[in-house]
């Protein structure tokens, strides 16, 4: 029995506004702040509000606000690629493992066990640090680290669908395995996969900026929120803006994506409850 009344979609509005602004920064930062990385050693560190610098400047005299706008793309693009990539691996391998079982399933679950035996941060730090790769190598490493949980998630949902009568009916009709997997099972797994992917974007954003906070992932001159935070440790007494702006941007972006993902997941769970 359905007992819920329709509520107003508060969550998409509340999360949509900040996410839309960030999206504009990512797409158009080269036009909005073309000179974000211009250094001005003469100015040096200034506190917020100084001469046209709303959030002040860092020790190289770069405007904190402009730098943060320019840093949006390195903060967001990598995580989106990570979430997409790992979910693609998750869907492909998870569907096969869940539906076919056998050695592939065993191998994948052992692989996941191994990776989950250590904290993601630690493995990411060790691998990217030792390999000495740049931004995209870090992205690749994080895809590999994120995929086991996605594989597990998809595998679990596929197994839950497989025992349902409609899949058994499809088997009895003699339909091919690929058709059952990708025409029958997959469309019913995609909604969960999508909300999981959103949550992964937030998690990847935090992980990526954590690595650049530790000095890995992004090159020295590239604008990046994690890097800005790392730099701000030496400026705390002179410019609080260098800390507060990138910190708030990371927190708000991650929280907005998480909130949206949670909301989608709840909505999906509610609609899939049998009447």
């Amino acid at each position: 029995m359905k007992l819920r009344t329709n509520r107003k979609p508060v969550v998409p509005i509340v999360t949509g506004i900040p996410l839309a602004i960030i999206a504009i920064f990512v797409i158009a930062s080269r036009w909005i702040v073309p000179n974000a990385t211009r250094q001005d050693i003469m100015t040096g560190v200034t506190s917020p509000g100084t001469a046209g610098h709303l959030f002040g400047t860092d020790q190289l005299g770069r405007d904190i606000g402009q730098l943060a706008i320019a840093g949006a793309s390195s903060a967001v693009v990598g995580p989106i690629v990570i979430a997409l990539g790992s979910m693609m691996i998750g869907i492909l391998l998870g569907t096969f493992a869940g539906y076919m079982g056998g050695w592939l399933d065993l191998l994948l679950s052992k692989y996941a066990d191994l990776l989950l035996a250590l904290p993601t941060t630690l493995v990411a730090l060790v691998v990217t640090g030792l390999v000495d790769g740049g931004y995209w190598v870090t992205v690749l490493v994080l895809i590999m680290l994120f995929s086991p949980t996605d594989i597990r998630m998809v595998r679990g949902s596929v197994i839950a669908q497989t025992s349902r009568p409609y899949i058994e009916s499809a088997k009895v009709l003699g339909l091919g395995r690929l058709r059952i997997m990708f025409r029958h099972i997959l469309p019913n797994v995609l909604p969960v996969a999508f909300s999981t992917m959103l949550l992964n974007v937030a998690f990847a954003l935090v992980s990526m900026s954590a690595l650049s906070f530790l000095g890995l992932g992004v090159g020295p001159g590239v604008p990046d929120w994690g890097r800005q935070l790392s730099d701000s440790r030496n400026l705390l007494d002179r410019n609080w803006g260098s800390l507060v702006l990138p910190a708030m941007l990371i927190i708000i972006t991650a929280a907005a994506i998480n909130l949206l993902g949670d909301w989608l997941q709840e909505r999906y769970e509610e609609s899939s409850v049998p009447r």
């Binding site: 009916s169 009895v172 029958h184 019913n188 899939s272």
Partner: peptide, 17 residues
Amino acid sequence: RAQIVFQDPTSALNPAM
């Protein structure tokens, strides 16, 4: 040769089709 109808009608059909 043979086809089957199950007990639970709510999960008997693919909700996505």
